[in-house]
Design a protein around this nucleic acid. Structure first.
Lengths: 151, 151
DNA sequence: CTGATAGTTGAAGTCAACTTCAAGTCAAGT
DNA sequence: ACTTGACTTGAAGTTGACTTCAACTATCAG
């Protein structure tokens, strides 16, 4: 493959860590853009790698793709985003992480007081009834993501 | 409704916080059991409430229903589980929570060093490339659960 | 020019954990 | 007996973030 300033989907996949199918999916939903060759193949500009890095980081912090899209939409049009642009977007994540850590710590402390008794009382046990907004988020609400579950 | 020692699905739903549809679903996959009236309606024994409390607590800690089922399968057959039985099951969660808290803390600290630079380098940035097993868990792996996302 | 390798598409499938639906049946207070 | 509210079923739908498939087509080193 010729070494140009444009990247194939395979190169982007390799360098970003996203599967080619994910890259096509992201293109479909407008998260990334790719030019095309005359034969219809995708050719990415290098800056897509930074964009993808942002997407991965945001996903790691827990943002949905919709939230990622909303964040990316605040980037300035017409010029390449600066480091400060990216920095601004990721700054808000700090508080989010703090909240998550606090919620988990609270859950753990509740568990400590619960292990000894084995109660799991629906009304009083901190484990089955954590006193935060989780219940209000509806059925299926869980504290921890599947990817971080048992090895 | 008569006050017997058996509970209707509505009563169990109310007292457990699970939707009736969730209770039916849990029965289908064998997580809980219900007797039937002559007319085919479900009647639950009271101890199902403790079992459901365990399920909720386990879900809060991040266990999948499969994992919950596996845990419940270790309960002794033939006798009603004691508090010690339930306590034993939940004891292992402590380590799990510790791990999750550590992972999030690491992510946050990585973010701190990242906000300033705005780099998001695919190879070096802690945010887009946390140095743990997350990547090995495959595409879509995220640190935080949807339920705890932005309000 | 050729063959290997990599890329293309839309539609459908996957996963988890439920929820929703429609059409009908049961339980129980009066 | 009647009425009302609660309950029943299986099948299909939901959500998010992708993956898989089958059947082609493009690119490029040699």
């Amino acid at each position: 493959m010729r070494t140009t300033d444009l990247l194939t989907v395979g190169e982007v996949a390799h360098r970003s860590g996203f599967a080619p199918s994910a890259l096509r999916f992201y293109e479909r939903v407008g998260l990334v853009h790719a030019a095309r060759t005359s034969g219809g193949q995708r050719r990415y500009q290098r800056n897509v790698l930074r964009r993808l890095a942002f997407i991965r980081a945001a996903r790691n912090v827990g943002l949905s793709l919709d939230e990622v899209a909303a964040a990316l939409a605040t980037l300035p049009e017409g010029r390449t985003p600066t480091k400060e642009d990216w920095s601004r977007l990721s700054r808000g994540w700090r508080g989010r992480l703090d909240e998550q850590i606090a919620a988990l710590t609270k859950l753990r402390d509740g568990l400590d007081s619960c292990i000894g008794c084995g109660c799991l009382s629906l009304r009083t046990c901190a484990m089955s009834n954590p006193d935060d907004a989780l219940a209000a988020r509806g059925p299926g609400a869980a504290y921890l993501p599947a990817p971080l579950r048992a090895t």
